[in-house]
Design a binder for these strands. Structure first.
Length: 321
DNA sequence: GCGTCCAGGTCTACC
DNA sequence: GGTAGACCTGGACGC
């Protein structure tokens, strides 16, 4: 992807009109870990800007349409509320099953159950990385499903961020299901499998990736490929990487990026922006080899990919105090 | 407005 | 295993 575009969200902030508040909305509340940083997690990378998420930087909220199973998708607004995360649902009432599903999804997205202590221990002694512990950085926002993260990752390959947004929007707005307020959920593998190949080429504007999406959706919908199992896989990272790269359109960068979202940080997921940012930050603006970048973060072992990402995105948010 | 060039990551064929 | 070219889109640029 083209990097100058990738960081656009830091400057523009809100680009969607606020949804009018309803007279009665239901609220759910989740306790957050002591080391959790809501802002750092939302802006951990560009996912907050991809539908069905909508980031409001003025209010520091994340809106998203959640798929809750059989009933209609539900839009919710997520915000920090002290040491808790508050979820405001655009419904007067919400069934137990739907409430539990939304809470489970939010916990997963914000990685509230991730134990960061090992990572923080790995970076705490390094003067250039100790800020990560103080800031509570390192939780990378993800989607409720591995499938959604995989599709979005493929959408980031070999194109500008603007095109990534366009492809994801085309997919969501055409194949997703509408919530009561007219926004759409991310389509399921089954919904994507129903779409003809021409949809991916002509409507989604996925270009040469079009057959890849069709094939992926078919394989997942038919049960041939269980991408959700990757998150709890016992396979060694090298083996899991091979399996992930078995998906058409997924190469080294895409596989390692997905592995980060799954919670494995061995890979660096180097793309053009990371290489450029590393050169500016650590190599006096001169391009350097991937080997040199790898050596720079090698001391962090299995956390090197996360250490790299935190290092390269440190300036995305001004630290307070 | 039109045409050309280029960047971006992966796939495939070839050596 | 390594490499070159094709894939497709949108932005930048020149005319």
């Amino acid at each position: 992807m083209i990097l100058c575009d990738r960081r656009r969200f830091q400057i523009d902030g809100l680009d969607e009109p606020a949804i009018p508040r309803r007279s009665k909305q239901m609220k759910l509340s989740i306790p957050a870990p002591p080391d959790f940083n809501f802002k750092r997690t939302i802006l951990s990378h560009g996912w907050c800007q991809l539908l069905p998420c909508r980031f409001d930087k003025e209010r520091w909220t994340l809106r998203r349409v959640f798929d809750v199973g059989a009933s209609r998708p539900i839009a919710a607004t997520i915000r920090a509320a002290g040491k808790r995360i508050e979820i405001e649902v655009a419904r007067k009432t919400l069934g137990k099953r739907a409430s539990e599903k939304i809470v489970r999804d939010v916990r997963h997205m914000f990685r509230l159950d991730d134990d960061m202590s090992d990572f923080y221990q790995a970076v705490a002694e390094d003067p250039h990385f100790a800020w990560i512990v103080r800031a509570g950085a390192g939780r990378m926002l993800r989607s409720p499903t591995v499938f959604e993260d995989l599709v979005k990752t493929i959408c980031t390959t070999n194109c500008s961020w603007a095109l990534t947004e366009k492809m994801v929007a085309g997919l969501t707005n055409n194949l997703g299901l509408p919530s009561a307020d007219g926004h759409y959920s991310f389509p399921s593998p089954e919904e994507m499998a129903k779409a003809p190949p021409s949809f991916y080429r002509d409507e989604m504007r996925a270009g040469y990736r079009a057959p890849y999406f069709k094939e992926l959706a078919d394989r997942v919908a038919s049960g041939e490929l269980d991408v959700e199992s990757w998150i709890h896989s016992d396979l060694a990272t090298s083996e899991l990487t091979k399996e992930i790269k078995g998906v058409k359109g997924v190469g080294d960068y895409a596989a390692e990026n997905l592995l980060k979202l799954i919670g494995r940080y061995d890979g660096l997921a180097l793309d053009s922006w990371l290489r450029s940012k590393f050169a500016r930050t650590h190599n006096k603006g001169r391009a350097c080899s991937d080997k040199k970048i790898t050596r720079h973060y090698a001391r962090f072992g299995k956390w090197r990919g996360l250490a790299l990402w935190c290092d390269m995105t440190k300036d995305w948010i001004e630290e307070q105090g």
